[in-house]
Design a protein around this nucleic acid. Structure first.
Lengths: 175, 175
DNA sequence: CGCTTTTAGCTAGATTTTCTAGCTACCCGA
DNA sequence: TCGGGTAGCTAGAAAATCTAGCTAAAAGCG
């Protein structure tokens, strides 16, 4: 995510952009971060809650609170509170895991899925319209490109430190 | 953001996917939301703080706390506290606006820009590598497609409500 | 110019969210 | 059966955001 700071903040000696495609992609990634907050506002919930529902509905296998917290980058205790919130709001239900009695299988309610789809519709419609403008060959090349980008981002997220690199300082010490 | 629940959760009778490209794009958008948190962890700051720096470095015109808060979807009071944090951490400096003495022009320090670029490098390298695999024609089509997607998302963010659609309930009332 | 309205930024106190620390129940391998 | 590791939860502390309201400066208008 996060755009191209060199052109925005550096002086006139900044390096030339590698390509228009890379520039456009970075812009997409930057705004994509903002769309999560926009979805949360449309749903009337917090950004983390919206991200949690997003993960739950798009994961091929059911998740429990701890695994959900890992994907969101929050602690297990925070994940428990998060799930409490989602259950209280009627977005999620706790179900037992079929094989492991320690675990829970979090189920997004049909109502919540419908709400999310409805809130996302304007964007999904616009995306489909953009896709429709591509020729089959262009669509195929774009899909392969995007899958590669997704792999890169997945790896970026996975290799991020589990904890902050410094103990989250509140005050200044060096003046 | 936010994946394609219909194809993931529906049974075998679900509608065919609109296209591989759309599916790949939705995956990219979903993961892009997570990369913001990953960047924040690498920088040792909060997700909002990382998003703020991102906006500041990629905005063509300088921003003040209030406008920054608008783009992040937070209140002006929270934006003041956010800027306090960033200034304390040495990531941002407050500078006077040249024409309007009410306003501030927030400047990202060179050190912070360097840190962000360093933290993003693995992803930017991977993106550039993916772009390099495209032919010039494919790159052009992809760039046009991504610009259109960015426009759609910008509009999606802009048309989101300023305030939550419901007063952020904490407890259940019907149960 | 003087007056009113609007805007940018800030402070104070309350609310919400996440964190650290630690606990129980359960799975798995020796 | 025993011991290590994992999933989920609770309690209290810390951090982030919010609401309400303030001052100063710009902008509009007689």
């Amino acid at each position: 995510m996060e755009g191209s700071p060199s052109t925005g903040a550096a002086g006139p000696a900044g390096p030339p952009p590698s390509s228009e495609a890379a520039r456009a992609l970075r812009e997409v990634l930057r705004i994509a971060g903002d769309t999560r907050a926009a979805l949360a506002r449309r749903l009337g919930i917090g950004a983390t809650d919206a991200a949690a529902i997003d993960h739950l509905v798009s994961s091929p296998e059911p998740l429990g609170p701890v695994e959900l917290g890992n994907r969101l980058g929050i602690r297990s205790a925070s994940a428990t509170t998060l799930v409490d919130r989602l259950v209280r709001a009627g977005h999620v239900a706790r179900a037992p895991h079929p094989h492991d009695r320690r675990r829970l299988s979090l189920q997004v309610t049909e109502h919540a899925v419908g709400e999310v789809l409805e809130a996302l519709r304007p964007m999904l419609v616009g995306v489909d319209r953009a896709v429709a403008r591509l020729t089959p060959e262009q669509a195929e090349a774009t899909a392969a490109f995007l899958r590669e980008v997704a792999d890169v981002m997945r790896d970026y997220v996975a290799t991020a430190p589990d904890e902050p690199t410094q103990p989250r300082r509140t005050g200044a010490d060096g003046g």
